[in-house]
Amino acid sequence: MNAFRLAGDITHLISILVLLLKIYATKSCSGISLKTQELYAVVFLARYLDLFTDFISVYNSVMKVVFILSSVAIVWCMRRHRAVKRSYDKELDTFRHYYLVGACFVFALLVHEKFTFQEVFWAFSIYLEAVAIIPQLVLLQRSGNVDNLTGQYVFFLGAYRALYILNWIYRYFTEAKFSRWIACISGLVQTALYADFFYYYFLSWKNNAKLNLPA
């Protein structure tokens, strides 16, 4: 465990806490893409299949359970909770995310570290996580103005993978046998997808103005 990775995991946890805060405090999920939340639930369920087979550390197991439970809880809440689901932008959140799932799964069947059930699902979850934010970014573009908590949620979500890239660089130089090229390349694609959001987020922070993305 190095500082970059710990900072990345904490930033990831913060993004989830900010989203939970927004939904429970405002009893609203306006501006949040249900499709992105569903994709994240699939990402964690597909990636943490080794939860009961490979014990790495208490920290590792606890964080896996937290990520799985929180992502499923958010999807459940946006689908079932009466007040919350009324505020869901159903007509704006129309990205066909099933195509993303299919494409990532086919790609994982082609490109993986080992052709085993667990490794293929791990690669699938890495690819899917890289593109899971797309429905959310499309929704933000369509809804124009972004409320503070939603903006902070997306910002922390993007920042966590950027910190992981620093972690992979650090591990590459400090560990002889470290090669995580699938995660590294996907992580770069994932962070690049946030580039324009980060740009407008920085501008809004610098000018102390409301964050609004050009349509």
Binding site: D50, D54, I56, N60, M63, K64, E119, Y164, K177, R180
Partner: peptide, 10 residues
């Protein structure tokens, strides 16, 4: 000990 292929990252 964890084999190198074990995913130790979240």
């Amino acid at each position: 000990i964890t084999s190198p292929s074990t995913k130790d990252e979240l």
